Simulated assay, not measured.
Amino acid sequence: MAEPVRREFIRQSDMVNYENSYYVRQRFWLDFEAVRAKVAEAAGAAPDEIALTRGATEALQLLIGGYNKLKSGDAVLYADLDYDSMQYAMNALKARRGVDVVKFDVPEPATRQAVLGAYARAFDANPKTRLLLLTHVSNRTGLVMPIAEIVRMAKVKGIDTVVDAAHSWGQLDFKVGELEADFVGFNLHKWIGAPLGVGFLYIRKDRLADIDRDMGDEEFPETDIRSRVHTGTVNFAAVLTVPAAIALHQEIGAAAKQARLRYLRDYWVSRVRAFRDIEILTPDEVGLYSAITSFRLAGKTSKSDNDAVVAKLRDGYKVLTVRRAGVAKGQCIRVTPALYTEEADLDRLVEALAVVRRPSEEV
């Protein structure tokens, strides 16, 4: 959280703690609905097209698990760069819905045409596919998928798409309609900067019937999107702080945030690409990257290889990176600058990589 948001979270926590059950029973749900309306407006959706959740994982699990148009013998499809928890949810459809689950690999190195070609081939090879999981910004490599193009390709084949936008809204400048997808899960506690534990799901208004009510929810009518989420008690203060996070996001400007994050990414990547023994997995092609970029040392594809590099960068140079598994060609290391990251921080990263990559400095 940015400092203004953190202060608001403390203020709201104090208020909820002081007013306690009276507030929750008398006023919270009015405030909750005001927050939902604010989120919808910012995302470019109607209020009755979104429901607040505890994060993108919960939102996407509800969309995937609740999708009711599958029948035995159908297939569902996802890629190696999709998030682990969402892969699990897709895998669970085999037992739950009687479908075949198909996984394929996104090409590396990625280009727009290579990515589109990979999805086209996957569709052609699996003509019984009826549901696709598609990640807007991969948490593994930072690859930004050409979502609208893939969604259009899928629709031609009679395939519905659930889009994982956990990392994209706030990192990229877009409205939900631009994705052209009917089902999308979002985080508010990542690049929007709200407190931990808040997100939302989007279901286009005319597709609500295709997602089941959550565990048969009866708090809301079947025609109300809020029946697709039954979280129970939420973190009231976290929800109440969301408008402050959105206000700051809008004050900075989505386009300005996107430009800043891409600048910071380009600042270090442009220099590290000169190191022939470091593979940059995220392309420089316009529209296919934002803040997140991953790399691996040539030939270093195992968990132990990448854990050792992460430890060296952290303990030797005070640079925090994250090992990422699940990439078809081997594990890698993710670098994620934030808005407050400075060029000097990235200078230290580049200097560290110049040393860590050398055979004499094997880790």
Results as ranks from 00 to 15, higher is better:
4 P>F: 10
5 V>S: 00
6 R>F: 13
12 Q>L: 12
15 M>F: 15
15 M>E: 11
21 S>A: 15
22 Y>C: 08
24 V>Y: 12
25 R>W: 13
27 R>F: 11
29 W>M: 06
31 D>L: 05
34 A>F: 06
35 V>L: 02
36 R>C: 02
38 K>P: 04
43 A>P: 03
45 A>G: 05
45 A>N: 07
47 P>D: 07
47 P>T: 10
50 I>S: 03
52 L>D: 01
52 L>K: 05
60 L>C: 11
60 L>H: 08
60 L>W: 05
63 L>H: 02
68 N>V: 03
70 L>F: 09
72 S>M: 12
72 S>V: 12
73 G>I: 05
77 L>E: 06
85 S>Y: 14
86 M>N: 15
87 Q>S: 10
90 M>A: 03
92 A>I: 04
93 L>V: 04
94 K>N: 03
96 R>F: 06
97 R>T: 01
98 G>Q: 10
100 D>Y: 04
101 V>H: 02
101 V>W: 03
102 V>Y: 00
103 K>I: 01
108 E>K: 09
108 E>R: 09
110 A>D: 00
110 A>V: 09
120 A>I: 01
123 F>S: 07
126 N>F: 07
127 P>D: 04
127 P>M: 13
143 L>D: 06
150 I>E: 10
151 V>T: 10
152 R>C: 09
153 M>K: 14
155 K>A: 15
156 V>R: 14
158 G>W: 11
159 I>N: 03
160 D>Y: 08
162 V>F: 07
163 V>G: 10
173 D>T: 03
174 F>P: 01
175 K>H: 11
184 V>C: 09
185 G>D: 02
192 I>K: 05
192 I>W: 03
196 L>Y: 08
197 G>F: 06
198 V>C: 12
200 F>M: 15
204 R>V: 05
208 L>I: 10
209 A>H: 12
214 D>K: 13
218 E>K: 15
220 F>L: 02
225 I>C: 07
227 S>D: 01
231 T>Y: 06
235 N>L: 05
238 A>Y: 10
239 V>T: 10
247 A>E: 15
249 H>F: 15
250 Q>C: 04
251 E>P: 03
251 E>Q: 14
251 E>D: 13
252 I>D: 00
254 A>I: 01
254 A>Y: 01
264 L>A: 05
276 R>E: 14
280 I>G: 02
285 E>C: 07
286 V>R: 13
287 G>I: 09
289 Y>T: 06
289 Y>V: 05
295 F>P: 00
296 R>V: 07
298 A>K: 15
298 A>R: 15
301 T>K: 08
305 D>K: 01
306 N>I: 11
307 D>Q: 12
308 A>D: 13
309 V>T: 11
309 V>A: 04
317 Y>G: 04
319 V>A: 08
319 V>Q: 11
320 L>E: 14
320 L>F: 14
321 T>Y: 06
323 R>T: 13
324 R>G: 04
327 V>W: 02
328 A>S: 14
328 A>F: 13
334 R>K: 12
338 A>P: 00
339 L>V: 08
343 E>F: 08
346 L>P: 00
349 L>V: 04
353 L>Y: 03
357 R>Y: 03
359 P>M: 05
361 E>I: 02
361 E>D: 08
